[in-house]
Design a protein around this nucleic acid. Structure first.
Lengths: 174, 174
DNA sequence: CTTGGAAAGTCAACAAGGCTGACTTAAAAT
DNA sequence: ATTTTAAGTCAGCCTTGTTGACTTTCCAAG
């Protein structure tokens, strides 16, 4: 027997009946967990053996995404301390994958860019990850993808959602 | 201008036109990243200050889910080494949150159960997490939730998907 | 009944990637 | 001229992952 203390939504159509049961929610939680693991595994495997890790990938992703963003922009997006980010950024700069230029509007700032080799690595990582997402999108169909995005956006916290929308908004203007 | 080298799907209806562009895929990747961060933050905050972390939460989640599962079951689900899991399990056993009993069918195995206090903590953590997912589900609607689940399942790797389906399958039989 | 292998547990050592706190330098703002 | 901000650095700590080596207990096949 299913858990009798669960919390079915009353008075809805049959297709909605199980929509918000604890059972259903827990299924979503576990699916999220397994999917996220697969999602991060592809770039992780490529990085395996190189002197870089997931943190380097994330930094490069957002630098590729918004070339010229400042260190504080990146700190804000990634939500880590500057000491954590700095450790990552330092090796990327030293190895010539990322370039840092004195800020245009404010010379205290440093604007970050990928070098050619940095861009090449970022592309390789990001293409591995995109391949998985693209395959999942194809398999699930446009309707499902729309739902996927809706749920993800509703799940973000305020700060994350703000950053996400901000990033998307700027894209549209380009 | 949007990236002209992107990869639009040709010859589909307008609603599908942007479905598989790199732009769209990248948006999904970033949404996934931000949403997963929020998703883990609630239990993390509760654990903050206690002597436990996310790894303890994960172990307790799956023990709560399948009481009596063996250590190797758990290793398989979590996908970590037994040394990693053991460190976590050891503290949970020592603190009396988890109980381990000699296996029924095979006395080499250890079956894992939550104690009353363990179940109480697990419930607290899991309810915090469910609250966020439930709110997102409610906001997005049943249709979106179905799509969300479809995409997640399509994104899992084979091993993960097998474990996930296995877990769900057993539920249905109960 | 012995022996080989599986399940669990342990020790030691290491790496990645988070964190805090304290402090410096350069440049902007007041 | 002084204060504040952006960046960077050093040192030390924690969690959670990894390998490799080894033990104990127990099942199962020869």
């Amino acid at each position: 027997m299913k858990n009798p203390t669960a919390n079915p939504v009353i008075g809805q159509g049959a297709e909605n009946l199980l929509f918000l049961t604890d059972e259903q929610i827990r299924g979503g939680i576990e699916a999220f967990f397994f999917a996220y693991r697969a999602f991060t595994s592809d770039p992780d495997e490529i990085l395996e053996g190189m002197d870089y890790g997931r943190a380097h990938h994330r930094a490069m992703h957002f630098i590729a995404r918004k070339p010229g963003l400042t260190v504080s922009d990146l700190l804000d997006i990634l939500g880590v301390t500057k000491q954590s980010l700095n450790r990552v950024l330092r090796t990327l700069l030293k190895d010539g994958l990322v370039e840092s230029r004195v800020g245009q509007r404010d010379r205290r700032e440093r604007q970050l860019f990928l070098s050619e080799t940095g861009a090449a690595l970022e592309k390789r990582l990001s293409e591995a990850q995109r391949a998985r997402v693209r395959a999942a999108y194809r398999a699930a169909g446009p309707q499902a993808v729309a739902g996927f995005r809706q749920v993800l956006e509703a799940m973000m916290d305020e700060a994350g959602a703000r950053r996400f929308r901000e990033m998307r908004r700027q894209d549209a203007a380009e």
